[in-house]
């Protein structure tokens, strides 16, 4: 339950804005119960009181999201002080941003990478796809040209081979997602063993690479679909 989660989170360093209680709880003061501004330096995981694991129970996350929404939403602070209203907007926008990111596995992994100091990797074609990409771009060009000249047969031919390619690309995407999820599990298990930076790095590197391939293929799929 989300209620429980709120109290088991890491102790806040901050002092309550209103009653000056030291180490007031996160989000709400343990003494006076008033809403607190977002703790400086919190990230989306810590905001939800989650460790930086990648396998997340999405229905549990949704439950926490709804429960916290009911605690933070500005609707409930309409006649509160300006500070509390501000804190409520801060907390609920952080909550919404965090939920949006964490509920999607890919966005979640990308976010973890930025937390671990990775820049967003450029979209790169997977090496085993380089030749195919060249071929596909040619076919896209052919389709475009055939459409222009009104050559129906040529267009139909290009279309069918592109459609075939799409099926293949979707399979590749699936493969990437499977490998990515396997990495998620590896990551979670080394986290449990207090991994060192050296232990983490190879996993993160591979994740970053897979994500870059993934984006590349998705762009390609989008381009093909647009042309079809």
């Amino acid at each position: 339950m989300a209620e429980a989660a709120i109290n088991t989170g890491r102790a806040s360093q901050s002092e309550c804005l209103y009653c000056r209680t030291q180490s007031a709880g996160p989000h709400f003061c343990s003494e006076c119960g008033k809403i607190q501004p977002v703790v400086a330096g919190s990230d989306y995981f810590s905001f939800f009181h989650l460790p930086r694991r990648l396998c997340i129970d999405e229905s549990e996350l949704e439950k926490s999201f709804y429960a916290l929404s009911r605690q933070f939403h500005p609707d409930y602070f309409m006649s509160a002080s300006a500070e509390e209203r501000q804190a409520s907007i801060e907390c609920s926008s952080m909550l919404n941003d965090a939920y949006r990111t964490l509920r999607n596995p890919v966005a979640r992994a990308k976010y973890l990478l930025t937390l671990e100091g990775y820049k967003e990797a450029e979209k790169k074609a997977p090496p085993d796809l380089l030749e195919e990409v060249f071929e596909l771009n040619m076919q896209i060009e052919e389709l475009r040209a055939a459409k222009k000249t009104g050559d129906e047969d040529e267009a139909a031919e290009a279309r069918s081979s592109l459609e075939e390619a799409l099926i293949d690309l979707h399979k590749k995407l699936q493969g990437i997602d499977e490998r990515l999820f396997a990495l998620f599990e590896d990551w979670d298990s080394i986290l449990g063993r207090d991994a060192t930076a050296d232990g983490k790095k190879p996993l993160l590197d591979r994740m970053s690479e897979l994500l870059s391939h993934r984006s590349y293929i998705r762009n390609l799929v989008r381009d093909i679909k647009e042309e079809l």
Partner: peptide, 8 residues
């Protein structure tokens, strides 16, 4: 389609 309040 981001839930609001939202920030960046």
């Amino acid at each position: 389609n981001s839930t609001i309040p939202a920030s960046a």
